[in-house]
Amino acid sequence: MDKAILKLTVFFAFLLIASLCVGRLLFLPWRANALNMTIVMYVRLPRVMAASLAGAALGLAGVALQNTFRNYLAGPGILGVTSGSAFGAVLAILLLPPNPAAIQLTAFAFGLVAMSLAYYLARLAGGGILALILAGIVTSALFSACVGIVKYMADPYNKLPAMVYWLLGSLAGTRWGDLAPAVPPLLVGVVTLLLLRWVLNVLSLGDDEALALGVNVGLFRALAVVAATLATSASTSLAGMIAWVGVVSPHIARLLVGYDNRRLVPASALVGATLLLFCDDLARTLSAAELPLSVMTSFVGAPILFAILVRRRACLAGS
């Protein structure tokens, strides 16, 4: 195994164990009692697992889409998937009785609807990468407007706060039962993207060169996009709208392992998992009231991306 990936794995494992111990109550493993173990097993472990899986999925979706669209700033939101999921969730909050599973399912379903719509619009616009990006912008704008309408129609004392809370992202109250519906599609997306890591290298060269190198561009691009959508929709249904993790994780991973997707793809998954887990730890420990997860990821992710850009500029100036 690559040394950098091994170090990342060890760091992630350390953070995973530390995340189980920190929180409103601080547990020390050597002083564990039955109550502590119950809290760890039924409250913290599902939450830590959810953060890790959602972070890994977002990191993978980000790196896959950046390579597929040959764009450093592409992220899970590029095809309107996150906006679609957001619309599904707020619609479920508006129309259905309070039920986390229903919110998850509609968020997931509308994420897929958004991706399908973007693909359909791209085909109408002539196909190709540019058409898909533009169709993604259109889809995203459309679903963002729909989210706005639903929020405008919502009861401001009861439904609207629930919508805002969901849109800001949170893993508070995640239990094993919440993980169950999200994990299968999330794992299908994650495993598919891990398997596609070599072909992502060739796809990133562009359609003509990839085709001349023997890659069925239409098939593998669709596979990568569908897998990234599955992973993003599932993680959004689990944790709400999470900003930055999908865009920033591949950039951090590139600093550690370079640009070859054979190493970059697993590294992005590990960085994404580590980043979201760390942000979730901060969200639940920094103040007495829990902070929204997306606010935390933005506070952490935005400066990291800026630091990377400055470092790249310095490297270019030095070379």
Partner: peptide
């Protein structure tokens, strides 16, 4: 040829082996 990511020259040449590579396993 506009390669968007700064792959090493070796990685670029290795992609030439793609027709012979098991696409899920890599070179």
């Amino acid at each position: 040829f506009t390669i968007p990511f700064p792959y090493t020259a070796f990685e670029v040449v290795l992609m030439g082996r793609n027709p012979y590579v098991n696409i899920l396993q890599g070179p």
